[in-house]
Design a protein around this nucleic acid. Structure first.
Lengths: 336, 336
DNA sequence: AGGGACCTCCAAAACGTTTTGGTTGACTCT
DNA sequence: AGAGTCAACCAAAACGTTTTGGAGGTCCCT
């Protein structure tokens, strides 16, 4: 309710002293400081955020772009990540704002709108593309940012990502070791870095094993996309006996295709993301997940360090992928 | 890059005139206005948001509280709703900020933090409880807000909600009409309004049909909660032949219980939310959904009208529930 | 007694807008 | 010619902080 002026007046002190007392400066006597703190508490004083931001030339805001277009920005646990990130940013006095990207507007334009209006101190970018114009723009403007997922940008930038290449390579090699020879891949849209790198992991493993990497179908990173892609692979003259899917949602879509086509218990399948839902599918879905606790906190930490000016090279986290074995990857490699 | 002062100087005009020209006031000549607009465009001028907020005494921000605790705030399409809401708010110059609720902190405290610091012009509340202290607080402070879901508050407040009572009553009556007599309910935590009202809808239908409403189990509104609740009902001496589940996620959990206990094709089941995932479960999940397009836009509209001062009574939307029939509700009412 | 070296405190400027309450000069009407 | 009207512009205040650059004491040392 109160502002600094009223508080100062009621205490018989100057605005300066009250302000500095509350901020803990040493040029205020301990007695005064205590008195001020008490009065501020009693009056329920909270500094006016706009005034502080204006004076300090900081927005105290970090924006995350959220495409509203495809009806889906990321895996369902994405919101938990955002929430965790916002929580840790809040501890540093920063708030997380949603920068929605309306249909027909590019993500780049939204970035510009926030950055040029000095509305944010930093940005969080999700669903990076291999060649991501947002990254290029932010780099050119020198705005701190962190991406969820790498890009092919030549200039290094802060990111957190899972080692999709290694994960998908390992998953494919594991199927090979179990006797599978026709191992298919259900890929996400290849302009996304995560989708591309997962596909390359599968492909590399196939080539290492001397197998043709030809059983690959691409779809939207949703259940429906996985369903259609699986149907396509199952129509091949020589069906896959195992499927490595870019995401759990695609894998769950593929599971339905398997049920429809072969009863659902012939072909091995593995996804990625460790959706809670995966434990409840039929059969329970084997999957992979990025290691590391509390992703949101990591993003917040990187953002703060980027704002503090740490060089990009020190703000890159590549996490290992681990398997979450349930049931769906255990089908024997029978010819269909 | 530039601010008003520099722009005014370069044009040989006063700050006032430039400001008013850009805002389209009529006391600036058309010629001057054009000249100013052109110069502003060329200089890439964007008004400093903090300065405007300070002067106008508006935060240009709306906060939505997101509990980070249960690992789950709402159905997966919740993020789409937020994104849509943010998009429509942005058109009115408002941004949506995430107000995370850390473990151990009450949602009320977070509300206070945002409201007392005048950091927001309005709030969006999700997952309302029957008796929701956030609602009481915001009402007492006279801060505009809209809730997703009703409450039992005696003072009316703006909300958008589905008519869960009617929906669950209708679903139960439909099972009755199909010959079912032992119709169970898998309920969400009863402190949430949505969970309570859905249960009451089921209960009312049972009583109308002269049946005992005793086959009810409660769980967390997640797959695991539905799974455990279903297991509990299936252990009853007289098993249900149909299940009405508070959410799709619970229904998907229950589906697994059914598969484990009776092979999964004996008992009818219906959920609520119309998750995309539901089309890919085994069997495909019949469900219900709230009618109405673009929920996010509706929230944004209500928020703007609440900020504009419209009375709460005119800002209440209760949407009908419609069935989404897939397959899981069609099992015959056989005795188990 | 004079000069530092603190310790407390404060007036005023600054941040970049928006808005209030004008002023100036040209034109019109009687 | 004087009064009134209007269009076009502007100086200054205000929003509530933080920070700069002191000012006035007190105490100690020589």
């Amino acid at each position: 309710m109160a502002n600094l002026k009223q508080l100062a007046h009621s205490l018989g002190l100057s605005i300066t002293t009250v302000s500095r007392a509350l901020d803990g400066y040493s040029d205020v006597s301990a007695a005064t400081r205590a008195r001020v703190r008490e009065a501020a508490e009693a009056a329920g004083y909270r500094p006016n955020a706009s005034a502080r931001r204006l004076r300090k030339q900081r927005a105290e805001l970090v924006a995350v772009t959220l495409p509203s277009d495809p009806g889906h920005v990321g895996p369902p646990h994405f919101l938990d990540m955002l929430s965790g990130c916002a929580e840790h940013l809040a501890a540093a006095g920063l708030n997380l704002v949603i920068a929605p990207v309306p249909r027909g507007v590019s993500e780049l334009e939204i970035c510009q709108r926030f950055v040029d209006g000095r509305r944010v101190d930093a940005m969080l970018l999700v669903r990076t593309k291999r060649k991501d114009e947002r990254v290029e723009y932010l780099q050119s403007r020198g705005i701190p940012f962190v991406t969820n997922g790498r890009t092919e940008s030549l200039i290094p930038h802060p990111f957190i990502d899972g080692d999709g290449f290694a994960g998908f390579r390992a998953a494919t090699l594991r199927f090979h070791a179990a006797g599978h020879r026709r191992i298919g891949h259900i890929a996400g849209p290849q302009e996304y870095y995560f989708a591309h790198v997962r596909r390359r992991g599968w492909q590399a493993a196939m080539e290492e094993c001397g197998l043709a990497a030809d059983l690959c179908a691409e779809g939207a990173p949703l259940e429906q996309g996985g369903y259609l892609a699986a149907l396509e692979l199952l129509r091949q003259p020589s069906r896959p006996t195992a499927l490595v899917c870019a995401t759990d949602e695609m894998a769950i879509g593929a599971l339905r295709a398997l049920r429809e086509v072969d009863g659902g218990n012939q072909i091995s399948i593995v996804g990625h993301d460790d959706l809670p839902m995966g434990a409840f599918t039929s059969p329970p879905l084997s999957t992979m997940r990025m290691t590391g606790e509390n992703l949101g906190a990591s993003f917040a930490s990187l953002l703060l360090r980027a704002i503090a000016g740490e060089p990009a090279e020190e703000l890159q986290e590549l996490h290992a992928i681990e398997f979450v074995d349930r049931d769906s990857h255990r089908r024997p490699p029978l010819a269909a």
